[in-house]
Write a protein that binds this DNA or RNA. Structure first.
Lengths: 190, 190, 190, 190
DNA sequence: CATGAATGAGACTTCATTCAT
DNA sequence: CATGAATGAAGTCTCATTCAT
């Protein structure tokens, strides 16, 4: 299945993300997708063999894109603390700006929809973060703990805060973002 | 709901949790519940008016139970650091021991199933944690940041680690638990 | 099936009539009957083998009772016109007083519930009316038309009026009843 | 309702009428409709949102059609007696020719299925008959009685006769139809 | 005998997928 | 290729009937 119009593929994926983020995977219906995209059912099935493939493809594309853009703008030869700060801010900014996409990803991760290939994309996202943390440990700046532990603290905290913020329960200002990054730093600091 | 046999109610709820935790809300089917509980469809519908009510009631019961047991065993007159430690460990222990229930809760929170009443139970769970953090601030032991920020760091980090651990990607030992609590402490410490 | 308590049988039949008259046969549920009679499901099934038998038995009992009471008070040796009047009035009075029962009967007649035996009760109800009409013809007071035709005019007209009246669309006074009887008389009069 | 193929809509309605007329509303099942029309369940639900809507729409369409055709062919400037005769014959002919439809209508009227809109269609059917009766009264040809009373006699009688005839209990010939109309005339004549 | 919770076949309805236009 | 009406398997839910108490 290698069809022509890449715009349509993107439109379908985008609408998929929007619908799943809004109503959850359980409520995601192909007919709603057809309406939102103004494409016939058959057209969608011309690009994706099934609902499952659509979800998986959308997930993988998103993961790849995210992984790429979260690590953007980090000077590979820079100072560790600055790299760390940049990464945190990238992540926070990205998650806020592309919140629907992150929600979509989380819905998928908690579901039975993802196939083995898709789940691999998940792991890859942590690679650069792990490399950075390893570097930090070498420089004696970061606690000598498993990366899983360190990463969880950084990401888990940020996620919850941003979700609260986007749910309207909390206002996220530049100042609170600073505080958030500082907390993560304090947590992992040697 | 016309309750007669409380054992059956509990059995139904328990099976609901198990099935949702295993396959997600999207894949949760009443017929599977009927099979797992060895109860007729009608029996289940005798206790819960609809699938939606079943999900909501199960959610509320769990939330109430969890809120209660996570704050158990904390000496109200104790030293702050010890209280904090106890709370963290309670949470970690509880989430590990009742992982399916936590998964169920998170599935629900990300869905469209929960009604207004159920969502209220959600907020209540943070009350005691907030009180503890306020006390810590008064004693100048905790950073003067919004509780949302502080709580997110503690809970978000723990959640991710435990999920990784139960997914088999990470081994959670007494030692790593100590490290996890320490990280949270470092994060919020003044 | 020859159970003990005739009061219960009557109570069940009465409630059946009420429920069917109110909501129609399509909506008639055994559980509603159980509630209205304050009898357990099993008790009802102790007296009637099935829903179908209950409907049929109730129908037959009603038909028998009605046939008997509609022809009551008519002097067999009286003047024809007086007999006719009395019969019309009996019918009108009875249908008004026992409207739910008549509705029940009509619901049954239009359904697939009635068995062969029950349908026989239906025909029997016309016997005395037919005899009366035959007498009228002999006396040259009544048109020499098939009884079906004559009876339809008398009964059909009365039914519609009473239904309208009980639906609240029309007020049935002693005067309008007189007019109704007069119309029937004019219709069949030689 | 998202209509595309009007033939299908009509086929569905026609089959609905047939099934309800045959077995009653209580026994009317969507699956039987699917079989009889050779349409998939989903197709039917594409045209009608629910069983209830299907019943109501079918009822309203029939009522509208009937009201129109029963009053057809009557010369508005004709002689009253001829108008009356024509109307009676129209009604009898129509009810015989479209007996299933009339049965369907009566099943609906005695049920809980009809919504408020549908019930309005019911009342409208009597308008022209009422106008005719008013004219007859003005010309001193018709008894000065409420139209409800007059109409009931005409319609009620005809209904019963036709039902008996279609049930096979009575043969309705041109001659008996004449007699029937004559009886109605005698009944309402001044 | 009376009870009413339990049962499960079968009803109504939805929605992923196909295919004639 | 695009379309969206049509499909029918499968899901949620009901209710006549039974049976352990």
């Amino acid at each position: 299945m290698k069809p022509r119009d890449p715009n349509k593929i993107e439109a379908i994926k985008k609408a998929t993300v929007q619908l799943v983020a809004q109503h959850g995977l359980a409520a995601f219906q192909m007919s709603a997708l057809s309406q939102l995209t103004s494409l016939g059912m058959g057209t969608i099935y011309g690009y994706f063999q099934s609902k499952e493939e659509l979800i998986n493809e959308t997930f993988k594309a998103l993961k790849a894109k995210h992984t790429h853009s979260i690590y953007k703008g980090i000077d590979p030869n820079g100072i560790f603390r600055e790299q760390f700060d940049q990464l945190c801010r990238n992540y926070i900014t990205h998650r806020r700006r592309h919140h629907a996409e992150h929600l979509f990803i989380e819905h998928c991760q908690r579901s039975t929809f993802l196939d083995a290939t898709a789940r691999q994309y998940d792991a890859a996202a942590y690679q650069v973060l792990n490399q950075l943390l390893d570097k930090g440990k070498k420089e004696q700046l970061v606690k000598h703990l498993p990366n899983t532990l360190l990463a969880a603290n950084i990401i888990g905290g940020a996620n919850l805060v941003i979700d609260q913020s986007l749910a309207g329960h909390f206002r996220l200002t530049p100042r609170t973002i600073n505080q958030l990054v500082q907390m993560s730093w304090d947590a992992i600091q040697h």
